[in-house]
Design a protein around this nucleic acid. Structure first.
Length: 281
DNA sequence: ACCCTCCTGTCA
DNA sequence: TGACAGGAGGGT
């Protein structure tokens, strides 16, 4: 499900919900997680909730000594849902799940906290949970687009030494973190750059446009709490609204908003790319 | 630099 | 029944 704006939305909402709460216990309901070392978690207190790349990283401590961090990656179908105790008392738990179109059997892990539980739902089971004694373990290699160092100049440097198509390059988390299939398409449309263009052939002007579009598209998506297609995504079970602003993604055969023709869908490295072949020469 | 795979569900 | 789905690690 999530790219940077969706993960950022989840983290911003989750932080006040679970920040400074004590962890009673962690339940791992998927056999894929059975080897995780969880002994440091029980009884610890949550001291930070942050986004690192597309991961949600929860740091925990005991008596102000940092004990470690949990990193959750939602991959394609993961959801992190905060279920306060009042909510499960007022409505029954099955009712709450149905309202959020979640199935109990897709709950893969649960952090029981004072005041509620944080549930990790993941239909396709691509999502990951990692535990480390330090959050630094989870720092991504790629640059975060919202880091101060992400300038047009730095972007140009990152792009060098590659011949990849720019759409494919934008998905590379080892270079720049956070962009996924939706926003790669939207960024290139905003910059009027053809997704098949090799990054080696981007003009300085185009590099500037893609850089600026990256920031403007991601910012706009965050302001709208991300993109939601069929069901909800954030930790409260609320909908993002950026899907109303998508210009090309998931709009095959629809008219380009420029009035020049229709949106095309093609496959690049096995993933759909949507673009306007007229606007993005 | 590419292809496949992990898994489950939905839609045409 | 097959194509496709917001991701990315591993193998070639």
């Amino acid at each position: 499900m999530p790219e940077l704006p969706e993960v950022e939305t989840i983290v911003r909402q989750l932080a006040p919900d679970i920040g400074n709460k004590r962890i009673k216990t962690i339940e791992l309901l998927d056999p894929r997680f059975e080897d995780l070392e969880t002994s440091a978690i029980d009884g610890a207190r949550i001291v930070a909730v942050e986004r690192l790349g597309k991961q949600i990283v929860i740091s925990f401590a005991r008596d102000s000594a940092i004990l470690g961090a949990i990193a959750i990656h939602l991959r394609m179908s993961g959801r992190l849902i905060w279920i306060p105790e009042q909510k499960t008392k007022a409505t029954s738990a099955p009712e709450f799940l149905r309202a959020a179109s979640l199935k109990q059997e897709h709950c893969r892990a649960r952090l029981q906290l004072e005041g509620g539980s944080l549930c990790f739902f993941d239909t396709r089971r691509f999502g990951t949970i990692k535990i480390s004694d330090t959050r630094e373990t989870f720092l991504p290699r790629g640059l975060d687009p919202f880091a101060k160092e992400f300038t047009a100049e730095r972007f140009g440097e990152l792009l060098s030494n590659s011949q990849q198509a720019v759409k494919v390059w934008l998905l590379r988390q080892d270079k720049l973190v956070g962009i996924g299939n939706i926003y790669a398409c939207e960024i290139l449309y905003a910059a009027r750059v053809n997704p098949f263009l090799s990054v080696a052939k981007l003009s300085p002007k185009q590099i500037g446009l893609v850089h600026a579009s990256t920031l403007s598209i991601l910012n706009a998506a965050i302001e709208n709490c991300g993109t939601t297609f069929s069901d909800f995504q954030d930790s409260h079970g609320e909908l993002g609204s950026y899907q109303e602003f998508l210009k090309v993604y998931n709009r095959e055969n629809e008219d380009c908003v420029g009035g020049c023709g229709e949106i095309t869908r093609v496959s690049q490295q096995g993933r759909s790319t949507y673009y306007c072949s007229t606007c993005q020469k």
